[in-house]
């Protein structure tokens, strides 16, 4: 294993050690996605009651797919920020920042942990959706992987922006880790098309990769066609936002080293 890969694995292993001996933490990861799915799954069932096909049944399916896919963004974001906060809470950042671990490797490790957490969180919900609502998330085929990736990347850049805020404002900005992604939800158009938003809000929604993913998802479910234009727009926006988030992260990390915030970040 190369030096960089070993350092990244070292930090991933640190989080794996915590989860492998703490079942409450594992339950907590899966709790909210499962709860969300149950609420929206039964709502979808109610809305499509008596309809075995047609728009009502498809709307129910889109609702369940939306819940599951939006959870990817939320879990990916929380996976990164929670793991970073874990280092703050355990007062371990001082040791990490004076080790040979590069900031980019720190980020890579946090992203890897978020992938693990996202799957742990989503897998029970995906299985329940299949068993309870007969909804197979993977039925549309490999194109779903592209949707997954776009949403995962969006969760990551939102998380990087939040970690940057933690560098700037310290643990006092902790509440943002739990609320920012939820605040984006109305503009991500998870359950309704962008056109249903007021005109002045539509540019905000269109600037988010998620709104394009969900437009594409609805096209796939309702019209059985892959809308590559929406996918391309989502991917391009993700690249732009991710580059911006990396720049903000690098800038705030540098400013934290100037201000001495790395020493007192937990206070």
């Amino acid at each position: 294993m190369s030096g960089a890969a070993r350092r990244i694995w070292g930090l991933v292993y640190r989080h794996v050690c915590v989860y492998r001996r703490s079942w409450p933490r594992l339950v907590e990861i899966a709790y909210w996605p499962t709860l969300e799915l149950l609420i929206w799954g039964f709502t979808a069932n109610f809305l499509s009651q008596g309809f075995h096909a047609g728009p009502a049944a498809l709307t129910g399916t889109a609702l369940i797919a939306g819940v599951l896919l939006w959870e990817i963004v939320l879990r990916a974001q929380i996976g990164v920020t929670f793991s970073f906060l874990e280092e703050i809470w355990s007062r371990n950042l001082g040791h990490l920042f004076v080790s040979p671990l590069r900031p980019a490797e720190l980020v890579a490790a946090l992203l890897a942990v978020s992938v693990i957490r996202t799957w742990i969180g989503l897998l029970p919900a995906i299985i329940i959706a299949f068993l309870l609502y007969h909804y197979d998330l993977f039925a549309p085929g490999p194109v779903m992987v592209l949707f997954f990736l776009n949403l995962l990347v969006m969760g990551w850049w939102v998380a990087l922006a939040i970690v940057s805020l933690l560098f700037r404002y310290g643990a006092g900005a902790e509440a943002l880790a739990w609320t920012i992604a939820f605040g984006i939800t109305p503009f991500a158009c998870v359950f309704y098309p962008v056109s249903s938003l007021p005109g002045w809000l539509q540019p905000v929604a269109l600037a988010l990769p998620a709104s394009h993913v969900f437009e594409g998802l609805r096209a796939l479910l309702l019209h059985a066609r892959v809308d590559w234009a929406q996918f391309t727009a989502a991917a391009a926006l993700n690249v732009v936002w991710a580059l911006a988030a990396c720049a903000v992260f690098a800038g705030e990390f540098h400013r934290a080293r100037v201000r001495g915030a790395l020493i007192s970040i937990g206070e």
């Binding site: 030096g3 070993r6 350092r7 070292g10 930090l11 292993y13 640190r14 050690c17 080790s99 040979p100």
Partner: peptide, 12 residues
């Protein structure tokens, strides 16, 4: 042991 393993990896 786990703490030392983590830092052992970080310091290669």
């Amino acid at each position: 042991r786990e703490n030392l393993q983590v830092y052992g990896h970080l310091y290669n």
